[in-house]
């Protein structure tokens, strides 16, 4: 028995060491990555962003608000922290880690909408977090979304299961090779050169007016997170602006929750003394030439919208 236990222990130890080693190398490699999934995270944890005007939110921040235009119009160094598919809980992970490693910005534009307010069932695009799971600023938020994430954090190499491309890319970069994936973002912003297609028509054919995206109790969780964000900003003397970014009017018509949600944001803004700018009823929302799908503006739409946003920030005196 002793021999068996010793043998198991030695093999186990060796195996764990190999797994740790491989995981370490892949993590290190990905921390050098400049691809869209990892570059912003890498810059955040290295404290390399330090923007004055920060855009935060989901893909409806990432694809709709161009920091170059904001910089040109406002003169403030800007960066877009928008994350594809992210609910507020995941956005908070990026928000917290940003503030932990970078200078607090003067202004944060936090995009809000029905999707972001919902409760996440899984960690979306988990591959972006792989090298950073040991960072508590990130892990503490994500574990609330997926309670089995502790396996990814504590069991070496396990986090790369199902992510062979990232694992290989990490090892390649660790070995000093050049990245195989091209970077296409500018300061976190990624425009899409796509046109409106039949996707929305197909969706409406299968949906009835008045369908709900998220139950009310799940939206309440979103408001609680927003409340925490507001308090955090107040504590750090950051001016927070909530922005309901444009979405296609036909889509808004389908959501009976939109009006009550807008009222909720307005009320939150008033109570907390935070600006709320609503674009959901803006004329841009009725013109499909600005959209590539119901929730996202294309490059042309993003340019028009960001110019409008910059103008509104200036005229409302938010940047004074």
């Amino acid at each position: 028995m002793k021999g068996f236990l010793l043998c198991t222990f030695i093999y186990g130890l060796l195996f764990l060491s190999i797994c740790y080693g491989l995981s370490f190398m892949a993590d290190k490699g990905l921390k050098r990555s400049t691809n869209n999934d990892h570059q912003t995270w890498n810059m955040i944890v290295e404290g390399e962003i330090n923007a004055e005007l920060l855009v935060a939110g989901s893909s409806r921040a990432m694809r709709l608000i161009d920091p170059k235009i904001l910089e040109d119009k406002t003169g403030l160094d800007s960066y877009n922290l928008g994350m594809e598919g992210a609910r507020l809980r995941s956005q908070l992970a990026r928000w917290d880690s940003y503030l932990a490693y970078n200078k607090p910005p003067r202004v944060i534009i936090q995009t809000v909408d029905l999707m972001s307010m919902g409760h996440a069932e899984t960690v979306f695009k988990k591959q972006q977090y792989l090298p950073f799971l040991s960072d508590n600023n990130i892990y503490d938020h994500l574990k609330l979304v997926d309670n089995r994430l502790f396996l990814d954090r504590y069991f070496p190499l396990y986090k790369y299961h199902g992510y062979m491309d990232e694992f290989k890319e990490g090892l390649r970069l660790y070995a000093g090779q050049s990245p195989s994936i091209k970077h296409t973002e500018y300061k976190g912003f990624e425009a899409k050169d796509k046109s409106w297609n039949r996707e929305f028509k197909q969706m409406t054919d299968t949906l009835k007016r008045g369908y709900l995206l998220h139950p009310d109790e799940l939206i309440e969780e979103g408001f609680e997170i927003l409340d925490d964000m507001i308090k955090d900003c107040r504590k750090r003397n950051i001016q927070l602006v909530l922005v309901f970014t444009p979405q296609y009017s036909g889509f808004t018509d389908l959501q009976v929750q939109t009006d009550s949600l807008v009222m909720g944001f307005e009320q939150l803004g008033k109570e907390s003394n935070v600006h709320f700018i609503n674009y959901v009823y803006d004329p841009i929302c009725s013109d499909t030439t600005y959209f590539y799908n119901a929730m996202h503006l294309n490059r042309k739409g993003a340019t028009v919208f960001t110019e409008q946003l910059a103008k509104d920030l200036m005229t409302k005196g938010i940047l004074d």
């Binding site: 797994c19 190499l157 199902g162 062979m164």
Partner: peptide, 15 residues
């Protein structure tokens, strides 16, 4: 071979 097999299992196990 044992280690290679074990690593394959870890990397490809389903969620």
């Amino acid at each position: 071979l044992y280690f290679v097999l074990a690593i394959i299992i870890i990397l490809f196990i389903s969620n």
